[in-house]
């Protein structure tokens, strides 16, 4: 059941149905192979960024739904492979995440082959590289007290890059002007930073910092664009982090 209430709920549902059809392993389903315990942000945030930006220009097309699913595949591939640690207790906890993650990469490439999405491939190449550079950076800093500056860099690469590309590609797709495109990319980046900081609770002040930044962008765009979908996305995010923790006190 889709947890986001708003303008793009039906498209998000459409994307979920589409991905459920695509993720098949002959006689097995994803749940037969992996025990995924994802919260609503894991399930919906990345595609919601795409669909919210798309909704600002009207109803989302199938093209936009495909783009949303690519972003979710990028998230899922890395999320699933992150289950593999250095000392997994059983073989299957190590084996399936690697292979299912690779399967997701295959789906990303396949979708990018659609002529209308192919021009965006370069951005996804860069995104996958950036995420993995972030993972490596975190690995280099393991067992150390990560300074705030380095921590920002890690989560920026690992997660905020994803939501930033989600917003940027959706904005390009929808034909936003250059100045709005930059703002929307920044909005996606800030949301991603808040998301990552909230998940780990290492530097909790970061959640507030980036949420305020995201909120300021919505306010700046309000007079120029139809921002209701962005506001709905923000509310969804805010609601989700407050369901799971009461530490965050940012007004909507």
């Amino acid at each position: 059941m889709v947890a986001v209430n708003g303008s793009f709920q039906s498209e998000l549902y459409g994307m979920e149905v589409l991905m459920n059809e695509e993720i098949r392993f002959r006689s097995f389903r994803l749940e037969d192979l992996l025990d995924l315990r994802m919260n609503s942000l894991d399930k919906y945030l990345c595609p919601s960024v795409v669909l919210a930006v798309g909704s600002m220009m009207g109803k989302n097309s199938q093209k936009m739904i495909n783009l949303a699913s690519i972003l979710q595949y990028v998230f899922l591939a890395h999320y699933i492979q992150a289950q593999v640690t250095e000392n997994n207790p059983t073989e299957h906890i190590r084996q399936y995440p690697v292979l299912v993650g690779d399967f997701m990469f295959g789906q990303i490439y396949l979708k990018l082959c659609k002529p209308d999405l192919f021009p965006y491939s370069g951005q996804f190449v860069k995104l996958i590289k950036t995420i993995n550079e972030g993972i490596i950076l975190r690995w280099k800093l393991k067992n150390k007290n990560i300074p705030l500056k380095d921590y920002r860099m890690v989560i920026g690469k690992e997660k905020a890059s994803l939501t930033a590309v989600a917003a940027k590609t959706a904005a390009e797709f929808s034909g936003f002007q250059e100045q709005h495109l930059k703002k929307l990319e920044e909005f996606g980046y800030n949301l991603g930073m808040a998301w990552a900081a909230w998940e780990e609770s290492v530097y909790t002040a970061l959640v507030q910092e980036y949420l305020i930044k995201a909120k300021i962008i919505i306010a700046e765009l309000k007079d120029q664009l139809y921002t209701k979908p962005l506001q709905e996305l923000y509310e969804f995010f805010y609601q989700e982090i407050n369901i799971n923790t009461s530490a965050i006190t940012i007004g909507i």
């Binding site: 593999v84 640690t85 250095e86 993995n132």
Partner: peptide
Amino acid sequence: NTVSISTGN
């Protein structure tokens, strides 16, 4: 494993 998976990706 972490570095191997990231290198593969």
